[in-house]
Amino acid sequence: MAIWGLADKTLQSRYFLPLFKTAFPNGLIYELEKAGHYSLEDAPEIIGLLIRQFL
């Protein structure tokens, strides 16, 4: 499982997300529109929920 902050200015999703999807074609990827590079700080409730559901 990967959680990607689409507002990330360091690992910009338009460049890196397609590479990640190619490397892990069957991977579960969540894209958070308002989260950035520090996604855990930007969206802790959502990420906590996603991790609990995954486990």
Rank of each mutant, 00 (worst) to 15 (best):
M1E: 03
A2W: 09
A2P: 01
A2D: 09
I3P: 00
I3V: 15
I3L: 10
I3F: 02
W4I: 08
W4P: 00
W4Q: 06
G5N: 01
G5I: 01
G5T: 02
G5V: 00
L6K: 15
A7P: 04
A7L: 03
A7Y: 03
A7Q: 12
A7C: 04
A7E: 08
D8E: 05
D8W: 03
D8L: 02
D8G: 08
D8T: 07
T10W: 08
L11V: 10
Q12V: 14
Q12C: 09
S13C: 05
S13L: 00
S13F: 05
R14D: 14
R14W: 06
Y15S: 09
Y15C: 01
Y15N: 05
Y15I: 12
F16L: 08
L17W: 12
P18D: 02
P18K: 11
P18N: 07
P18L: 00
L19W: 10
L19Q: 14
L19H: 10
L19P: 00
L19E: 15
L19Y: 09
F20M: 14
F20N: 01
K21L: 04
K21C: 04
K21A: 12
T22P: 00
T22K: 15
T22E: 13
T22D: 09
T22G: 01
A23D: 05
A23R: 14
A23E: 08
A23M: 08
F24A: 14
F24P: 00
F24H: 10
F24E: 07
P25I: 07
P25D: 11
P25T: 11
N26C: 05
N26D: 13
N26F: 10
G27F: 08
G27N: 05
L28Y: 09
L28R: 13
L28I: 11
L28T: 13
I29T: 14
I29M: 12
Y30I: 02
Y30L: 04
Y30G: 04
E31H: 07
E31R: 07
E31S: 10
E31Y: 08
E31P: 02
E31D: 05
L32C: 08
L32W: 06
L32E: 09
L32Q: 08
L32I: 09
E33F: 02
K34T: 04
K34C: 00
K34G: 00
A35C: 07
A35V: 01
G36M: 03
G36C: 05
G36A: 14
G36L: 03
H37M: 02
Y38S: 13
Y38K: 10
S39Y: 01
S39G: 13
S39C: 12
S39K: 02
L40E: 06
L40T: 14
L40S: 09
L40C: 07
E41R: 04
E41D: 10
E41L: 10
D42L: 01
D42T: 01
D42Q: 05
D42P: 01
D42K: 04
A43N: 06
A43S: 15
E45N: 12
E45F: 11
E45S: 11
E45G: 08
E45T: 09
E45Q: 14
E45A: 13
I46A: 14
I46N: 06
I46D: 11
I47N: 06
I47K: 06
I47Q: 07
G48N: 15
G48P: 01
G48D: 06
L49T: 12
L49H: 12
L50V: 04
L50P: 05
L50N: 03
I51P: 06
R52F: 01
R52W: 05
R52A: 13
F54Y: 13
F54Q: 13
F54I: 02
L55N: 13
L55I: 12
L55G: 12
